[in-house]
Design a protein around this nucleic acid. Structure first.
Lengths: 255, 255
DNA sequence: TGTTCCTACTTGTACCTACATGTTCTATTA
DNA sequence: TAATAGAACATGTAGGTACAAGTAGGAACA
């Protein structure tokens, strides 16, 4: 199964960019030139360039040409790791305490988010994350059980969820979308994180997917706002990851 | 100057979505049907749908149809705009109330962030942002005065700061870095935003730069957490800086 | 009853033409 | 010399055709 022509062209150009053959700011050959080079129609070239534009690799200027994007910041500003890797990379000492780990049934929210049927089995993993000996965050992860049968036999106070998923189930997280909000910690959450009431926490909802687009997990978490900030780069030219918006209310603690 | 046909079509469909005429999950007419309805070629329809797909409003399924997106997380491919443009694009009615606008002297933090000398003149603009008639955010912007002499003569309850910077001073924001945190609103902030105490707010610190890397402004803002979330895409493709980390403490209310 | 196959319909890919619009540079003109 | 007009070339828009590929439902058959 060979890929579509426009993807081949896009890959070819992308390789030239990533190999340094095409430097940032460099001008690509014109669409007509590319059309001749690759022996495909101009539409196909435009399709390929459109893909690269959406992904932020190139920019077109009407009447002038198409250029490799100049990135002050590395293009993909954010990267996706599990909490453990993320913290380990920062030289932090990470621990986890499993509060709850069980199979539950998908409620309407979970069914919609995980793209599974209402009532289907869902792995529920509720952990307190500990950084340098102090409570830092609470993470409630929901995974479709079909993808990871028997996963609860692992001890997630020692093992990393993403490691297990990658090694045992060959499910590698590729991209995710998340929302960041602020809330007053509920008494339960405050107690677990040893916060005095009232305290503000960062509330994050995250959908993690594989490269193929399958939803691996949906995570709700609260981070201690005195220990964490989220950091983002914004860009004006290419498509950029951040936005402000109003959405559904973040649902309160379950049960 | 009338817009391009594909944009007209895209807008027409978008209006149907936003008006609720097309519910999330609903199926759009087929491309051929749309082509007949709007009396344009199928290519033009596909161009319009492609735009809507990139912006996350619709999704196409090969062989089945095109549907209004029903993800929890809309794929907002947003750019770096000022607050006004950002909100206007979402069809919100935006207003501003100038709380304070004056020249101050750079304290050590401002001097460091704005890359200017200690004590240099800084434009300070403190605004209450109003969306759809209700207080939504407080924004305290700091700009090096040398870049924008006389800027305070504008009425920023009507004019957009970014518009004035672009038109009058040719300073176009190109990229920015920001931190997102959570805090309990101070009594002053809570009062301005009509929040009952205690309330959690999203605290954002942002450094905005031109394409050349000059710092245009440093902004501190608080957003009502019941009206805003921040949205981010994460990608795992390469390894580079990460999203979560601890930074310098967000300083408390000045004065 | 249950399975298979075919058909109709959908989106996806690929090519073509034509003209509009914006930019840049060159040659002509005042 | 300086301004202008135009040529050449870039991307943008809009339309056409044809076929590939995926899906769903109904008809035919075992």
């Amino acid at each position: 199964m060979t890929k579509a022509l426009y993807q081949q062209v896009a890959n070819s150009i992308l390789e030239q960019i990533q190999s340094g053959e095409l430097q940032p700011g460099a001008r690509l050959p014109s669409e007509n030139a590319l059309s001749e080079q690759h022996q495909v129609g101009r539409n196909t070239i435009r399709h390929a360039l459109s893909e690269l534009t959406v992904k932020g690799y190139v920019e077109s200027v009407h009447g002038v040409g198409t250029f490799v994007t100049e990135t002050l910041f590395p293009k993909t500003v954010e990267f996706l790791y599990g909490f453990s890797q993320e913290m380990a990379q920062r030289g932090k000492n990470v621990g986890s305490k499993v509060i709850e780990a069980k199979i539950i049934q998908a409620d309407p929210l979970l069914a919609r988010v995980l793209r599974i049927q209402l009532g289907a089995e869902v792995v529920f993993l509720n952990r307190l994350r500990i950084v340098d000996g102090k409570p830092a965050a609470i993470e409630r992860a929901y995974l479709p059980h079909t993808f990871c049968l028997g996963i609860l036999e692992h001890d997630f106070s020692r093992e990393s969820l993403y490691d297990v998923l990658a090694v045992q189930y060959n499910m590698k997280p590729d991209h995710a979308e998340q929302e960041i909000g602020a809330e007053i910690a509920t008494p339960q959450v405050a107690a677990l994180m040893e916060l005095s009431h009232p305290a503000a926490v960062l509330v994050i909802h995250r959908e993690t997917r594989t490269a193929e687009g399958r939803v691996i997990e949906y995570v709700e978490s609260e981070f201690r706002s005195d220990r964490f900030r989220f950091y983002t780069n914004l860009k004006a030219s290419a498509s950029s990851p951040t936005a402000i918006f109003q959405r559904f209310p973040i649902k309160s603690e379950e049960e």
